[in-house]
């Protein structure tokens, strides 16, 4: 009973923590230090992120072969965008679709990661071992994950999945036939999930689940056990406790995981590149790079246009996140 009361009183007290009185009395040296600590990172950020980003936007309206001096670049208006949306639509839309598939799929993985964390947090026997096993893939970069899965799991002639699979051999790496597909009114070809991209999603799940699990484990440790006790005493079952008590108190972690998940999905590049960018697995990251990098890869305008599309996707998410975050903040 006393535990429950304490928990309740803490719940009541919680919002008050947020309203800390702001001190405006900064000394002169405080101001200098503050402006340095804000100014230096901001300058670096603007120099290395926003100026190149703006340059990309400018270049996306130009035609330049990256060979003649930059002064020779010709403005072409929206032609590069017209080219990527109508002529290279067979690149752009499948890549965007794959990125959206990734966002959706990685959210499912995040949910699985949360479930794993919840179960492991119950101090079951050997939980440290399970934790290490699930966490192990996170120390590998996605490119390395790609190499590992390509050679040991997916390989048609010698991969583990093909050895264990009872049916005929499956080409996990190269088979671009669709698992499901649908038509869009403005496209003359169907969009859909390729088999090889589905396989690649599995490899990404292998890593992403462990990553999210660790974040939630840390979060769960911070949840006051008294809260759970209280809800148990109030007669809530496991699911109700999780939904109404544990999950809400994980809110800060949920936000972090949502951001990580979306960013991971939009910036996907390395694992696709490691599998040699098979047909059906293209993502925005690879089509941007292909147009820009490489010998003779002098399609700066078109590559920049792809890049701007990706930038807009990222910005849309960031704006949504920032506005949401601040709105939530005001409510509290």
């Amino acid at each position: 009973m006393s535990a429950s009361l304490r928990a309740e009183s803490e719940l009541m007290a919680a919002p008050r923590k947020g309203r800390r009185r702001r001190s405006t009395a900064l000394t002169k040296s405080d101001k200098i230090w503050l402006s340095l600590m804000v100014g230096i990172p901001a300058t670096i950020h603007i120099l290395l992120v926003w100026i190149p980003a703006l340059a990309t936007v400018v270049l996306s309206f130009m035609e330049w072969d990256n060979l003649l001096p930059i002064g020779e670049a010709q403005p072409v208006g929206f032609r590069n965008y017209w080219v990527i949306f109508t002529i290279f639509d067979t690149n752009l839309f499948p890549a965007m679709f794959n990125n959206f598939m990734l966002v959706a799929f990685l959210f499912v993985c995040s949910a699985v990661g949360m479930l794993f964390a919840y179960l492991l947090d119950k101090n079951i026997r050997g939980s440290a071992i399970y934790q290490s096993i699930y966490y192990f893939p996170v120390v590998l970069s996605l490119a390395v994950v790609g190499f590992i899965w390509k050679s040991t799991m997916f390989s048609r002639d010698s991969g583990l999945l093909n050895t264990l699979w009872p049916g005929g051999r499956i080409d996990f790496v190269g088979d671009s036939t669709k698992v499901f597909q649908f038509d869009l009114p403005f496209l003359d070809f169907p969009l859909g999930l390729s088999r090889n991209f589905a396989a690649l999603l599995l490899a990404m799940a292998w890593r992403h689940i462990g990553y999210v699990m660790v974040l939630y484990l840390a979060g769960l440790k911070a949840v006051d056990p008294g809260l759970r006790e209280a809800s148990a005493i109030d007669g809530a079952n496991e699911v109700q406790t999780f939904r109404n008590v544990v999950f809400p108190s994980l809110k800060p972690i949920n936000v972090v995981v949502a951001v990580i998940t979306v960013i991971e999905a939009l910036r996907a590049y390395d694992i696709v590149a490691a599998l040699n960018e098979q047909r059906g697995t293209e993502v925005m990251g690879t089509i941007v790079t292909n147009a820009l990098v490489g010998e003779g890869g002098g399609r700066v305008g078109i590559g920049s246009a792809y890049g701007v599309v990706l930038l807009l996707l990222c910005l849309a998410f960031i704006i949504w996140y920032v506005t949401n975050h601040y709105r939530e903040g005001e409510k509290a």
Binding site: V49, P52, A53, A55, T56, L59, N66, L266, R267, A268, Y269, D270, M284, G285, V288, T289, L292, V293, G294, G297, V300, G303, S304, Y306, G307, V308, L310, L311, C314
Partner: peptide
Amino acid sequence: LAACGSDDDGG
């Protein structure tokens, strides 16, 4: 490159 694709002139 993959970080939001904001690099301009890779390579």
